[in-house]
Nucleic acid binder design. Structure first.
Length: 272
DNA sequence: AACTTAGGCAACCGCTTTAAA
DNA sequence: CTTTAAAGCGGTTGCCTAAGT
């Protein structure tokens, strides 16, 4: 169901947006054809992933490297799971999002076969609305402040400021988690579904807490405290790598965890 | 039946981070 | 140490389809 305006061949920019002086080859844009898919699949099978920038030329594709990578990661990888998001997957997404926020790649890393793009789209088109309908702020999973006529009724299209979020009080002290620096950590960023892909997360989780909303999570706090993994440093609760990794695992493997904290969640308006 | 609106999702954009030279 | 290339990420766009009028 891909539709992206095909023309727009403004070749005046490289794939990274930098201006170019020499006339670039006419890069194709828009939806991929079955033929292109086949070429890419065959090439990756033969040469392996990586070197995306040069891949198009080597493979004989008139696409930019970014486009090839995206197509492979989001659609052509053999381990991609097709089909609707299952109920348990949805439940996991909700719980992970509550802890991780919009870290789609990290969330995807915990859902084998699902891509960050797919989860992001699913979140924006389904789950955020679901939370709103429950009176919860999709960003923080906290109860929406009563804002007459400005919440669930606020229809939106896709993600552009999808949710009317009233000014929030500072989130409760949350674990110190990585911000966008979780990106680009040497792994392919998609965290190889199912392979403990939050290692990079854990490695960076002590960086800073700025900009991470939706994580003020009593769930993790309790969990970490129970593990003795909490320290209060500069007013910011910290968790160690193992604690956080275990916590994410527990989110996946122990539905009981949520039940154990039901009281907490109820206090917050029944989040999740 | 024709038109309009909303939803869904693949693809693109721009920025950040990391690694290599 | 600095610069540059490569890769990855989150946000956004825009087309197609379905539902509604």
């Amino acid at each position: 169901m891909a539709r992206r305006k095909p023309p727009a061949q403004h070749g005046a920019r490289s794939e990274d947006g930098q201006a170019q002086t020499t006339a670039p080859p006419p890069l194709k844009r828009g939806p991929w054809t079955a033929e292109e898919d086949e070429v890419l699949v065959r090439f990756v099978a033969r040469e392996g992933e990586g070197r995306w920038r040069t891949l198009p030329r080597r493979a004989g594709l008139l696409r930019c490297g970014k486009s090839c990578r995206l197509r492979w990661m989001n659609y052509l990888r053999p381990d991609i799971k097709r089909g609707p998001i299952a109920e348990d997957e949805e439940d996991l997404i909700l719980r992970l999002h509550r802890v991780l926020g919009n870290r789609w790649s990290l969330i995807a890393g915990r859902l084998p076969g699902r891509t960050d793009n797919e989860i992001k789209n699913y979140w924006n088109s389904h789950l955020s609305k679901k939370l709103i309908a429950q009176g919860l702020d999709p960003r923080t999973h906290m109860p929406l402040a009563a804002a007459p006529g400005k919440t669930a009724a606020a229809t939106h299209k896709t993600t552009a400021a999808p949710v009317v979020v009233p000014p929030q009080p500072p989130p409760p002290p949350g674990p110190v988690l990585p911000t966008s620096s979780a990106a680009g950590t040497g792994s392919d960023g998609h965290d190889n579904p199912g392979d403990g892909g939050n290692d990079d997360l854990a490695a960076t989780m002590s960086v800073d807490a700025d900009g991470f909303e939706g994580f003020g999570d009593q769930l993790l706090a309790d969990y970490a405290a129970s593990r003795g993994g909490f320290e209060d440093v500069m007013g910011c609760p910290m968790v160690d790598d193992d604690t956080f990794t275990s916590f994410l695992d527990s989110l996946m493997n122990e539905r009981q965890l949520a039940a154990d904290h039901k009281g907490v969640m109820n206090d917050q308006g029944g989040a999740i």
